[in-house]
Nucleic acid binder design. Structure first.
Lengths: 267, 267
DNA sequence: GTGTAGTTTGAATCCTACG
DNA sequence: GCGTAGGATTCAAACTACA
């Protein structure tokens, strides 16, 4: 039988293909310094699309359908956030990123699970997608919530001085400005199309890692996608465990982290 | 007996002193075009905060911001948001402003009540209060959620062109930049101290009103404070009903709106 | 009136080590 | 758990005082 502690050692520095809940359950209590999570927010839509025999989706009573869908999303969110709470050290912190579709639900769940919010951060996009039909404001930002597991712990890691230096000698604020992930940084598949729909810019993850971890800390990412969190962790000498349930992303992430590592050794 | 419709007429253009739930219950169904709500934030401050120069920060310690628990806050929030849902027209919209202390809970409640989020807006503050102890990021923004009552209604008011003109010919984005409400705009009491701890800048309300109402629309504000919503509504020829449970604020709001009206006639 | 220096202040979940 | 001493900690804008 493999104990949780043995699993942990086998997981260190790995990109693991599998269901994040199943993997997380193999991680011991209070073993992780930082969680970064970029969860899916379109479960509702997926559910509606794959539901069989549902010929008139538009005719379904909206309120009931919405409640059902939000309920599923909440159940899923509470499950993985609850596991994150368990596997974090008491002074460990978690970052969750989302948009208005899901981030309000996630924020309330974080609070209900006992996490204590330290900040919310606005990632303002230099180059957002315009609102083509002109019926709303251009959605030009995403929100990150940063929270500590145990409210009473004041010794969470926040590298205040490094952040201040990064910001021209002034305190780093809650508004961050980065362009979307495009160009050479954006991973492509064999046919040249974007490999992942929501690849985050490396600069965003660099700031997260620099701000809230120390060298040698263990970073966990349950929805790693193309592994941006792993690249940032590796660059700054942090350990990591990444998980994704899509094998294409896992392969891409492994390759990408190796590349980043080799580039770092050469350069 | 006074019917709801008669109450409505008596309420138009008024700043009403009373419990917002009691007042709202006297408003007929689907009578309101826009709700703007700046509810208590449930800040849960732990200790007093001393600046580096040893002076004390004048923090929000008002009774109206005291709640026993998240549960109490949720119960209160669902009650007033539910009333807002009832009194809004199906294509009416609601704005709610908050910070990470409360806005995630409010956002989830909005969704659970059937509101459909159109945008979230980030008010980035030019001159926020610094983080004096250097233990977090400077909290430099607040969040506004904009939602329509009925998801299926696409005919909510959004003055796309006016917003575009305001933004130098480019689509108005979800990041808005305004300074805090200070100086002459900030209302003072007889002793010269700030009358309200959280007075919002008029420019913020002007943009809200300009973006999401037409001339003659009815705007409702259940936590009007010093009446910034009323001033903006009056300036742009919108009707309004404002409510606050603190008589000092109500008096100040009435006086302020009259002043603004007279200034407009003179100027 | 003008320019400069000093003061005030803002929705804040704002410390740590030791006894 | 508590009390206390020690030590590190702030940005921009508006306002006031004064030359």
């Amino acid at each position: 039988m493999v104990t949780k502690t043995e699993s942990l050692k086998a997981f260190l520095g790995q990109v693991i293909h599998g269901d994040c809940l199943e993997i997380m359950r193999q991680v011991p209590d209070e073993a992780v310094d930082l969680v970064f999570a970029d969860p899916p927010y379109n479960l509702q839509l997926q559910n509606e699309l794959i539901r069989p025999n549902q010929t008139k989706v538009d005719a379904v009573d909206d309120d009931w359908d919405k409640f059902e869908s939000f309920g599923d999303y909440d159940e899923f969110s509470l499950a993985w956030l609850g596991e994150c709470h368990r596997l974090l050290k008491p002074n460990g912190t978690i970052w969750v990123i989302g948009t208005y579709h899901n981030v309000y639900r996630l924020g309330k769940h974080l609070q209900d699970l006992g996490f204590w919010i330290l900040n919310d951060i606005v990632w303002v996009k230099d180059n957002p997608m315009p609102n083509f039909r002109g019926v709303r404001f251009t959605n030009a930002h995403e929100i990150l919530i940063w929270a500590v597991k145990d409210k009473s712990r004041k010794d969470y890691t926040f590298n205040y001085k490094e952040m201040k230096e990064l910001n021209k000698g002034k305190q780093m604020r809650s508004d961050w400005y980065f362009p979307l992930c495009t160009g050479r940084e954006r991973l492509k598949d064999d046919s040249g199309k974007k490999l992942h729909n929501t690849q985050k810019p490396l600069a965003l993850l660099e700031r997260v890692i620099m701000a809230s971890t120390k060298e040698g800390d263990l970073v966990f990412d349950p929805f790693c996608g193309t592994g941006t969190t792993g690249v940032a962790a590796k660059m700054y000498g942090r350990n990591y465990i990444l998980v994704d349930n899509d094998e294409r992303y896992v392969k891409a992430a492994r390759h990408r982290i190796d590349e980043a590592c080799h580039r770092a050794q050469r350069g």
